[in-house]
């Protein structure tokens, strides 16, 4: 299937002032390669500060890259000017859904106006606008649309508001969508609805989706592939089924262990956790960046950075001890 987005060795560095004269480099993304095909969702999973949101924004060219390249349908967009991006209609074809369904909708605008705004900005005719808005509202199941266009955001539940956000992103007919934690602020009873909706719309409209989340359990239901990030790098990536069934990187294994499941047998039982917190990206550890929190780190991990190597078909891991973990010679938990 056709590739929609491709990132090649993408780096995003920020210069951060420290003190009066000094400055430090913050490496938000440090050499990330990733691709997303049509009708495919790739989940990017990690703790706050791992660079997952930066990755989303760089892939949309909402941020410029420091190094590396970003391709949209085969064309390098990483150094295109804003005019070029517009001229080629790339801006329309790439959209984002934000996390917070409460603050991302203007409370004084009706739903119909919120969803039609992008079309007006791009100079569509009135009949086209009506047609596209109704279609988008139907796609997100805010039906009948004529009932919702005149409502205001405060009349809707959190889940419904997030569907308005999705409709707004859909209305220009994008081929690539970044969904940045789209359900983390929504009540548990509506989360599944939004996630399943995203999946069905993706298939219907044949889009590629980058799903950014800290919740690896939700990634399971919406994504075909998964990339686990740690401090600006991919620690493990592969088919979602493969990574969740046979996690290899100690970080992935412990991340999976941190997810609570509704089983009273776990009560009061302390679970193995990742000790400490992610180190500052301003001062990342040498060698493997995870070595300071890794229960199976050895001397080599402190000095030598592990490469991302394919251990199973399509399943890549950046860990010096991957073979031993796979063979069961050592245990992470």
């Amino acid at each position: 299937m056709e590739e929609v987005i491709r990132l090649e060795g993408v780096k995003k560095y920020y210069e951060v002032r420290s003190g009066l004269i000094g400055s430090k480099i913050l490496k938000a993304l440090d050499g990330v390669t990733l691709s997303i095909r049509k009708k495919e969702t790739v989940a990017v999973v990690g703790e706050s500060g791992c660079g997952k949101s930066t990755l989303g924004r760089v892939s949309l060219r909402l941020l410029d890259v420091t190094d590396g390249r970003v391709f949209f349908k085969g064309q390098d967009i990483s150094r295109m000017t804003e005019e070029e991006l517009r001229e080629k209609s790339f801006r329309k074809k790439m959209q984002i859904i934000f996390q917070d369904p409460y603050s991302s909708l203007n409370p004084f605008m009706r739903i119909g106006d919120i969803v039609s705004e992008p079309l007006e900005i791009h100079g569509y005719r009135r009949e086209e606008i009506r047609e596209a808005v109704y279609r988008a509202l139907e796609d997100v199941k805010l039906v009948p649309p004529e009932e919702f266009v005149n409502r205001y955001p405060h009349e809707l539940s959190g889940g419904q508001r997030q569907r308005v956000n999705i409709a707004r992103a859909l209305v220009l007919g994008p081929e690539y969508i970044v969904a940045d934690e789209p359900v983390s602020m929504i009540d548990a009873s509506s989360r599944a609805e939004i996630l399943l909706l995203l999946k069905s719309i993706r298939d219907k409209r044949e889009m590629g989706v980058l799903y950014i989340t800290h919740d690896i359990a939700t990634a399971r239901y919406v994504s075909e592939r998964i990339a686990v990030m740690y401090l600006g790098e991919i620690a493990e990536t592969g088919l979602t089924t493969s990574v969740l069934k046979t996690p290899i990187h100690p970080y992935t294994i412990l991340l999976l262990n941190s997810v609570p499941e509704p089983d009273p047998a776990n009560r009061r039982r302390k679970r193995p956790v990742i000790k400490g917190e992610p180190p500052s990206p301003l001062n990342p550890p040498s060698g493997c960046k995870f070595h300071t929190r890794c229960p199976v780190a050895i001397e080599r991990c402190r000095t030598e950075k592990p490469a991302l190597i394919e251990y199973m078909p399509g399943h890549f891991v950046a860990c010096h001890r991957a073979t031993e973990i796979m063979r069961g010679d050592i245990s992470v938990t």
Partner: peptide, 14 residues
């Protein structure tokens, strides 16, 4: 409605 890491069930919504 809880997404699970194991098993085959797909989360429902209310």
């Amino acid at each position: 409605s809880i997404p699970r890491l194991r098993g085959e069930t797909i989360p429902e919504f209310i």
